[in-house]
Design a protein around this nucleic acid. Structure first.
Ligand code: SF4
Ligand code: SF4
Lengths: 128, 128
DNA sequence: AAAAAATCCGAGTAATATACTCTGATATAA
DNA sequence: TTATATCAGAGTATATTACTCGGATTTTTT
């Protein structure tokens, strides 16, 4: 996604190109981009001279969206993951630990939702 | 550890007792407590009527210490884990993503280091 | 003294997740 | 027509991790 952000003004970028730059196998990268496209974070152009490009400007795509798309809900424990409400453990009521995971989960999402691809390529807002 | 915090004034608590309360197998719990003792978060008393007790008051034991002891370094990616400086990836210099993981790692540690066992059993400082 | 109750310790196992590959189909440009 | 791409689903293989097992040691109770 960082490579696509850098190429945002250009035409589509092919998997081959990105895979070469980042030392990832094209086949694996392909799976990743399929998920990104289904989540509408990128658009695809099929056929020769095709490839992928960001669906929105880099400033409007945050890392939280990317990570949640590729890795699922951001959570330190299954029981506080978005979508698994209660079905993971029967003692969610009396559990004194759950609150910790909820707080951690919320901070994690905040951090990642607060960084955009634009921030990453301009190295702003990440390390002071 | 929450159970030990609740029993802090009493004598040592046995694995059997905790395992029963929390629905964990005693054998597994044993392994966990061995690590906690080696990290000097708990003291052990061997023999009949023995068990474990917190090495310090609940207010002086934070969740970060417990988690790092049992799960290793708190980090969203291997390459930003404490102790794996550089040896995980050769492109740490030009990597634009690493800064994100560093920031996330720091915030995660901050959250967990800021919650003590005392906070958990009194349900303060966790959920407003 | 013997038995019971507990921690100590090193291995070993089994299920699961995840990183990654394979094969083929479809679409588009040259 | 050919080369270059994405699309798609299934399969594999490795590593982690949750968990177990067997036996030794220490202390209390009988
Ligand atoms: S016991 Fe608490 S922390 Fe553990 S899975 Fe259940 S609700 Fe979550
Ligand atoms: S490429 Fe960057 S984020 Fe990935 S392992 Fe290397 S340093 Fe870490």
């Amino acid at each position: 996604m960082v490579v696509l952000a850098l190429n945002y003004r250009e035409g589509p970028t092919s998997i081959r190109e990105i895979a070469g730059k980042e030392n990832i196998s094209p086949q694996y990268l392909e799976q990743i981009f399929l998920d990104l496209r289904r989540a509408e974070l990128v658009n695809s152009v099929r056929g020769a001279k095709g490839g992928y490009k960001l669906a929105r400007p880099p400033s409007e795509i945050n890392i939280g969206d990317v990570v949640r798309t590729l890795e699922g809900p951001i959570a330190p424990m299954e029981c506080v993951a978005e979508g698994s409400e209660g079905d993971c453990c029967e003692r969610t009521q009396e559990c004194l630990t759950r609150g910790v995971w909820e707080k951690l989960r919320d901070r994690m999402n905040e951090v990642l939702d607060d960084i955009s691809l634009e921030d990453m390529i301009s190295s702003r807002n990440i390390n002071p």
